[in-house]
Simulated assay, not measured.
Amino acid sequence: MKYPVFKEGATLGVTAPSSGVPTALHDVVKLSCSRMQSRGFNVVCGETVWTQEKAKSSAAQVRANEFNAMMRNDTIDMIIPPWGGELLIEILEYIDFEGGPGKWILGYSDVSGLLLAFTLKTGLATAHGTNLVDLRGEYSDETTAMWQAVLSTKTGESVLQHSSPKYQKEWRHADPSPYIYHLTEPTYWKTVSGTKTSMQGRLLGGCIDIIRHLIGTPFGDVRHFRKHFIHEDPIVWYLENCELSTTDLRRSLVHMKLAGWFEHCSGILFGRSSANRPVEGYTAEEVYQELAQELQLPIVYDIDCGHVPPQMTFINGAYAEIEVEAGKGKVKQFFKP
């Protein structure tokens, strides 16, 4: 595994490999950029950030070219998209996975398809966490703010994150918060076993709606990754559901199992989700219970990951030790080569 270096005063490259930002919301991006500049970062925005039509910022080749150029540009230290979207998968065939020095790519949602593909194909660690527009607040909550400490961790070192005190139940755009989020509900990490649970292994994951589409493609070869980059260390999957019904979630997990993605797996983490609506009484909790029984693995759910903020920063490829007890969770990530 290779871990990018993050430095003070870094130059952030903002590009839109999935959705760009419509004109009506350009001020949101400009505010996000100014906040980052006030915190000592330089910001370079690509042209794709400012356009959005037919569910994408621009044509696939245009998006890929801009991303590739930023990856090769020695003056750009890190890449962070404004947000996710719908059609990032279109650009994967045009990405130069070996081009330029390794640098951090940070994001989530649709961007998690790019993050996971990069790590699986190259052994370069990628960061699943906040996107740019959620850093536009006057302040960041303690969970979100950890992105910088996590990315500043050096190879051979470790970093510890704790579960959030509270999470956001719903967006209140008419009542803006200096923290962006309205964190009102007590966070409680749950275990299928109902008891203290621990697991350890190399982290892989993202938005299950998105990463499931990598199965069977050149961008989703988990076996090759295990053999060539992590010396057959066990894997801990972290997954979050954006829009899937419980039955579609179940289908996706079975698909992952049949594709061998859960081989050498030591545990699974599921993020909070507002999409977990029962189908004929079939609940997400029952999906987790069935999977735990089939795989004989510990499963933790309602963690700080995904579309119900705040979320931790998970590093694809890092070795993690996870402990959950009485609703509280700890994630210690080791930047192990």
Rank of each mutant, 00 (worst) to 15 (best):
E240N: 14
S252D: 12
P309W: 13
G329C: 12
H162P: 01
I235C: 08
H231F: 04
Q37S: 07
A174V: 00
W104I: 02
L160C: 08
D175V: 09
M146S: 12
S158Y: 03
G20D: 13
A69F: 02
S158N: 05
S245E: 06
V254F: 08
G100F: 05
V21W: 14
E93M: 03
N316I: 05
P186T: 00
G107Y: 05
M199S: 08
S252M: 08
P22V: 14
L183Y: 11
A318C: 13
F67L: 15
Q289K: 15
W147G: 00
D74V: 02
T48R: 10
D141F: 02
T195S: 02
I299A: 00
T283Y: 00
D221N: 15
V324Q: 09
S158T: 07
I105W: 00
L115H: 05
N65M: 07
G13Q: 03
P310L: 07
L124T: 07
G113E: 06
I322L: 08
D302P: 02
L124P: 00
V331M: 10
M312V: 09
I91P: 03
D110L: 04
L12S: 03
V49P: 12
E321S: 13
T246K: 04
C45W: 06
D209R: 08
W50C: 02
V43C: 05
S32G: 14
S58Y: 10
L203I: 09
F335L: 14
K336H: 12
K103A: 00
V28K: 14
E325R: 06
E323N: 05
T15F: 08
A292D: 06
D134C: 12
V150K: 04
V5F: 11
L120N: 09
P82C: 13
I76V: 15
N241M: 08
A59Y: 05
M312A: 09
F225N: 08
L297T: 04
I76A: 11
G267F: 09
S32Q: 01
H128T: 14
I215H: 02
A320D: 04
Y282Q: 02
L114G: 07
W171K: 14
A69I: 00
T51N: 12
H26D: 12
D304P: 04
G194C: 00
T247W: 06
G84I: 10
R223S: 13
A59I: 12
L249I: 08
F225Y: 15
P101V: 02
S140E: 15
K336I: 10
L249T: 15
A318V: 11
L249E: 13
W147Y: 15
R35M: 11
W104Q: 09
F270I: 07
V21N: 13
D304S: 06
S164C: 06
V43T: 06
F335N: 10
L135E: 06
S273M: 11
Q168N: 00
D141C: 07
V29N: 10
I230G: 05
L269G: 04
L239G: 10
G20H: 13
S57E: 15
T143A: 05
L25P: 03
I91D: 02
V111R: 01
V236I: 14
K7A: 10
I105Y: 03
G205T: 09
C265F: 12
G194V: 04
S58N: 14
I180Q: 07
L297E: 05
M36Y: 02
R72F: 03
R251T: 08
